[in-house]
């Protein structure tokens, strides 16, 4: 009985390590081997008291047509096929209940179907930033949020998983822009 107790304890302790480690592994694997796709989005700047400063990432594409005959229900897991356009920006072009055989796709949850269209709940919504860079990020957003160029979310996609890798503006990495601005408070670096 005592041996069984120790075996159960050992397995539980192992599982308590495996769950977070599996999360890290999937994340790193997606970043390393995933396809890079770019999504045009808007990004206001809220604050999560538990996890710090983040940018709320909202891709501009909000809805997609439901294929004829597909019985979608709210909360159902579906697969969104992604196609990159001539401008280099990707968009969801097709929804399916089964994983697509080819191409890049993201697994996401469907919403209510209305007028044969459903809203897209993107599997990423937050891009966390360093607290010390946050004030500079505030200024940067105030200056650029209404720009026609728009903010681009750079997402790595692998086997239906999506990881938000970076944000960019006018071809420059968001992290780089903020670092430049932090080093050069006059704000010449955009």
């Amino acid at each position: 009985m005592k041996t069984l107790t120790f075996i159960i304890f050992g397995l539980a302790a192992l599982a308590q390590w495996l769950v977070p480690l599996a999360g890290i592994m999937q994340h790193e694997l997606t970043l390393a081997k995933g396809t890079l796709i770019k999504l045009k989005c808007s990004a206001p700047d809220p604050y999560d008291p538990l996890r710090g400063r983040f940018l709320a990432v909202r891709p501009q594409q909000r809805e997609i047509s439901v294929p004829a005959g597909a019985k979608l229900q709210r909360g159902m897991l579906v697969y969104a096929s992604l196609t990159t356009g001539t401008d280099g920006l990707a968009s969801v072009t097709h929804l399916s209940i089964e994983p697509p055989q080819s191409g890049d796709f993201i697994r996401l949850k469907s919403s209510y179907v209305h007028n044969e269209k459903t809203q897209i709940h993107w599997p990423f919504s937050r891009f966390y930033i360093n607290e010390k860079l946050a004030p500079e990020a505030d200024h940067w957003f105030a200056e650029n949020i209404r720009s026609t160029k728009g903010i681009i979310a750079e997402v790595r996609v692998l086997n239906g998983r999506a990881v938000l890798a970076d944000l960019s503006f006018d071809g420059k990495s968001f992290r780089e822009i903020l670092k430049q601005r932090d080093n050069n408070p006059s704000g010449t670096a955009r």
């Binding site: 999360g23 919504s125 966390y128 938000l164």
Partner: peptide, 20 residues
């Protein structure tokens, strides 16, 4: 303590890696 630290480790890893 063990239950709390197991939850905290998942939450912290999620925060560190922005796992969503």
């Amino acid at each position: 303590l063990q239950a709390s630290s197991a939850g905290a480790s998942i939450a912290l890893v999620s925060q560190i890696y922005n796992l969503g």
